[in-house]
C-alpha cells in the first residue's frame, strides 16, 4: 500500500486553476523532492494536501494510506499523520510554543482514543527534541513564532514535526532563508526522522537542500503539472540548467 497516491489532481485557488492534473505515488520510507519555478503551484499542492480552506479540488483523487484524504478536515489529516512544514510559518500571538505542542500532541492521542500525555513527561520529551535543534526553553515559553527570526521559525517547524512524528512529512521550502549552519541543523533534524516507514515530500526551489537530504525521486513541477521525474541526478541537472526549459512548455 502506498502512503500517498495522487491521481490526476486538479485544484483551483479562487477561480484560477493552479494544479492541472498531478500524478504522484509515494511508498513508505521514500523521500520525494518536488522542484519547480516560483509560482508553479508547489505551495498550492502542499495546502491542498493539508486541507486548507479556499483551495478547492476540482478533479482527481488523493489517497493517504487507504483513506480518501480529500474527505478529511485539516485536523483529521494531521491526526492521520500528514504534517506540513509551512513555507511561511505563522505567528500565533498569545499561544505559547509549549501549549501549542501539547494541544497538538494530545489532539492526536485523543483522535487515536488514547489518554492525554503526562504533562511532565511531555515537557521532558519536547525539551530534549528542542535541544537537538538548538532551541532554548525560552523559545518554547514565547508565543509560537512571534518575534522569531526566519531560521528560528523553520527550526520550530522541524521541532513540531519531531514531536508529532508524522507518517508523511511535507516540507515546503524549509531551506529558504536559511544560512548554511541553520540549513545543516534543519537537515540533520529531518534526516534523524527518516525511517523505513516515514515518507517525505520535500518541496524546494534550489538543489542545495538535497545535498543534505538525499531524495529517492525528484519531480519537476511547472504549470501545475509534473513535467519530468527522475532520480537525484535530475536535481543536479536542474541546478546546472535552471528551469528555463520548462518555462516555454505550456
Amino acid at each position: 500500500m502506498s502512503i500517498l497516491s495522487i491521481e490526476n489532481l486538479h485544484a483551483n485557488v479562487g477561480e484560477t486553476e493552479i494544479l492541472r492534473g498531478i500524478n504522484l505515488k509515494i511508498e513508505p520510507g521514500e523521500v520525494h523532492a518536488v522542484m519547480g519555478p516560483n509560482g508553479s503551484g508547489k505551495s498550492t499542492l502542499s495546502y491542498v494536501l493539508a486541507g486548507r480552506d479556499g483551495y478547492s479540488v476540482t478533479g482527481g483523487s488523493v489517497e493517504f494510506k487507504d483513506k480518501d484524504l480529500l474527505e478529511l478536515e485539516a485536523d483529521e489529516r494531521a491526526n492521520e499523520g500528514v504534517f506540513l512544514a509551512f513555507q511561511y510559518p505563522v505567528e500565533v500571538p498569545g499561544v505559547t510554543g509549549m501549549t501549542f505542542l501539547r494541544e497538538a500532541y494530545n489532539s492526536r492521542l485523543r483522535y487515536e482514543g488514547k489518554d492525554e500525555a503526562d504533562a511532565m513527561e511531555f515537557l521532558k520529551l519536547v525539551r530534549s527534541k528542542a535541544k537537538d535543534l538548538n532551541m532554548s526553553d525560552d523559545m518554547l515559553k514565547r508565543p509560537v513564532n512571534v518575534g522569531f527570526s526566519g531560521g528560528e521559525k523553520k527550526r520550530n517547524e522541524i521541532l513540531q514535526m519531531a514531536v508529532l512524528e508524522p507518517k508523511l512529512a511535507i516540507l515546503d521550502e524549509t531551506d529558504s532563508g536559511l544560512d548554511i549552519d541553520a540549513l545543516r541543523l534543519v537537515a540533520d533534524g529531518v534526516n534523524a526522522l527518516r525511517t523505513s516507514e516515514r515518507s517525505m515530500l520535500i518541496i524546494t526551489h534550489y538543489q542545495r537542500l538535497l545535498d543534505y537530504i538525499e531524495p529517492d525521486h525528484v519531480h519537476v513541477l511547472a504549470h501545475g503539472q509534473i513535467q519530468r521525474s527522475g532520480g537525484k541526478e535530475l536535481a543536479l541537472e536542474l541546478e546546472a540548467n535552471g528551469y528555463a526549459e520548462f518555462d516555454d512548455k505550456v
Binding site: A50, G51, R52, D53, E73, A74, D75, A78, N79, F83, L84, F86, P89, V90, V92, V95, F100, E103, A104, S107, R108, Y111, V144, Q160, L164
Partner: peptide, 11 residues
C-alpha cells in the same frame, strides 16, 4: 491562525 492550528491536529 486557525489553519496553522488545525494543520497540527487541533480541531
Amino acid at each position: 491562525h486557525l489553519f496553522y492550528l488545525k494543520a497540527r491536529g487541533i480541531n
